[in-house]
């Protein structure tokens, strides 16, 4: 059913810390690996050893430069489905293949219903839909629905593959519908934001901005000395004569 369910109480999603992401692609490849055997398998690769390799990936790492000079930054920017609250990718779907789960807000594709019209990919402003040309169906990030509820995994491992693997800990998973959750508090504390809020999709996933502070209090840092004049060495050496410390 592509009409949206009543706003779910639980809104599972990701919080991605752009201040910490080093752009290593671990999350992207681990996502590919997990999902290659998961509910959306295979993530087909075309011409894998050829001149124009192209495959299905649920998570891709972009990079940007923002600002100029000393204020400028390079920002690595992972992007996967944001599990929007108002996902037009769902409402445009003519078959009901694309749906948003009432219980946790996860947006999924039921491949058995998908006719591969690709309309949802045009409706997604975030480029999160992945058409599997070989299978003729649309695929996308499942928020690792086959991990987060998987009773065959130890409870601590029931998090998305991309979150479990991120070496710097730039990815967080949780219930963004619950203002008291760890992820919600992180968003509140760090000024997490929505991508393209003007389009009104109300993404569940949030991004944390790069920090602006230097992270170190240097308020009382030693004032710089005047540039050396002649005799500096002698003066210093003399001054250090009494620096005696026993071994």
């Amino acid at each position: 059913m592509t009409s949206l369910p009543a706003p779910p109480e639980r809104q599972l999603g990701l919080v991605i810390d752009l201040d910490t992401c080093v752009g290593c692609h671990a999350c992207a490849v681990n996502c590919k690996q997990w999902n290659s055997g998961g509910v959306a398998a295979p993530l087909t690769d075309l011409d894998p050893y050829g001149a124009a390799p192209d495959g299905v990936w649920f998570n891709r790492i972009h990079s940007f430069e923002a600002g100029e000079g000393a204020a400028g930054r390079t920002v690595h920017f992972p992007r996967s489905c944001l599990h929007c609250a108002e996902p037009a990718c769902v409402t445009v779907c003519p078959t009901g293949a694309s749906y948003k789960r009432a219980e946790d807000g996860i947006v999924l594709v039921d491949e058995s219903k998908c006719i591969g019209c690709k309309l949802c990919s045009w409706a997604c402003p975030y480029g999160a839909r992945e058409f599997d040309v070989d299978a003729g169906v649309m695929k996308k990030c499942t928020l690792c629905i086959d991990r987060i509820y998987n009773e065959n995994l130890a409870p601590a491992e029931r998090v998305p593959a991309c979150v479990a693997t991120c070496p710097v800990g730039a990815r967080h998973f949780g219930d963004l519908g619950d203002p008291a959750s760890k992820v919600s508090r992180l968003v509140a504390d760090r000024g997490g934001f929505d991508l393209m809020p003007e389009l009104g999709y109300r993404p569940t996933n949030k991004y944390l901005p790069p920090r602006r502070t230097t992270g170190c209090s240097v308020a009382q840092a030693v004032p710089p000395e005047a540039p050396a004049a002649a005799g500096v060495l002698e003066g210093k050496l003399f001054g250090w004569l009494d620096r005696l410390f026993s071994r």
Partner: peptide
């Protein structure tokens, strides 16, 4: 209405320019 700044939320830092795409060859999108 969407701009590179709003698509990344990085407008506060300054003008946003793409550096590298995720993959070097073209994909479906």
């Amino acid at each position: 209405r969407a701009t590179p700044e709003s698509a990344t939320g990085l407008g506060a830092i300054g003008q946003v320019r793409p550096l590298d795409p995720p993959h070097t060859e073209e994909n479906y999108l």
